[in-house]
Each structure stands twice: as structure tokens, then as C-alpha cells.
Amino acid sequence: MWSFIAKALLAGAMIAAIAELGKRLPAMAALVASLPLVSVLGMIFLWHARPDARNMAIHSEATFWYVLPSLPMFLVIPMLLRAGLHFWIALAIGCALTVALYLVMMNIGPRFGLRL
């Protein structure tokens, strides 16, 4: 239980640090947010819990493929904001697009041999 709490606190601290940095340096906060820190920490925690190279390889490769459907959100949201949409609406549309693209990836990926 303590391990879970420590992981949650670490993830929360990373998000809070990015938000604080974003107040002063939005581009720098975006750079830090784009780093695969959560993925790397997740892999470290997963390896610690289950040191299995095959499992880690599957996890790492699936992470790559699942990142791709999330990328368009980061272009759609600023486009919608610049077009005058309210932040929450733009965010909801971006998130809905991401969910839709995840579903597409989950349905199409295995047809091309992807292990998702």
C-alpha cells in the first residue's frame, strides 16, 4: 500500500511541478510534459514488480503505439482555442478525438500484427 501511495505522490508532484513551471515558462513546461517521465517511471515500477523482459518489451511497444493516437489532440486543442472556442469545450473535443483514435487503434492495430 505504501508503494502505491509513494507512486501516486510522485506522479502528482510531477504534474504540479509542470503546472507551476507553465505559469512562467509555458514552452518549457510543455517540453517537460512531453518527456516520457511517466512512461519511464511506469516501466521501472513494472520491472520492479515483475522483472520479465518479454512482458516489458510488450509494454514498451504498446506504449509507443498508444502514444500515436494521443498526438492529434495537441494540434486540435490549440486550433480550437485560436478559433474562439472555450477552453473546456476545446479540451472535451480533444479528449473525445483521442478516445475515438484509441478505439480505432485498438481495432485496427491487431490486423497489422500489433500486440495491443
Rank of each mutant, 00 (worst) to 15 (best):
I5K: 14
A27L: 13
V76D: 00
H59P: 04
A33I: 01
G22T: 06
L68I: 15
A19T: 11
A30H: 10
I89N: 12
A6E: 01
V99Q: 00
C95M: 03
V40A: 11
A62I: 02
I58R: 15
A90N: 02
T63S: 12
L97R: 06
A92K: 07
Y66R: 15
P26H: 12
I77Q: 01
A17K: 12
R24V: 06
H48F: 05
M73C: 13
S34K: 11
S60N: 12
M73S: 09
A83Y: 03
P26Y: 06
W47D: 02
H86A: 06
A92H: 12
M28L: 14
R24G: 11
I89H: 14
V38G: 03
L37F: 09
A30R: 12
G12E: 02
P51I: 00
I93M: 00
P72T: 08
R24I: 04
F45M: 00
A19Y: 11
M56T: 09
F87Q: 13
L75Y: 14
L25A: 15
V32M: 07
S39K: 06
I44L: 09
W88S: 11
S3Q: 09
P72Y: 03
A49V: 01
L37E: 00
L91Y: 05
L71G: 10
L31G: 15
A6L: 05
L21W: 05
L80P: 01
L46G: 03
A96M: 08
A100L: 10
A83W: 10
L91M: 04
L9A: 06
A62R: 05
L9V: 09
L25N: 15
P36K: 15
Y66K: 15
L80S: 01
L75G: 10
F4K: 09
L91K: 02
L31N: 14
A33D: 03
A30C: 11
H86M: 00
M28C: 13
A100I: 14
A53L: 00
A29N: 07
L97C: 02
L68N: 06
W47P: 01
W65D: 01
L25T: 15
M56H: 07
R50F: 02
R50V: 02
A100H: 09
M56I: 10
L85A: 11
P69D: 03
M56D: 09
V38L: 06
M43Y: 13
S60W: 11
A27I: 07
A33W: 01
L71V: 15
L68V: 14
S70H: 14
L68M: 15
A62K: 04
L10E: 08
S39Q: 08
R82G: 15
A17P: 01
L10T: 12
G12H: 03
W47E: 03
R54F: 08
L46R: 12
I44C: 05
A92Q: 04
L81I: 06
W65Q: 04
F74L: 12
R50Q: 09
V32H: 02
P26V: 03
F45K: 05
I5G: 01
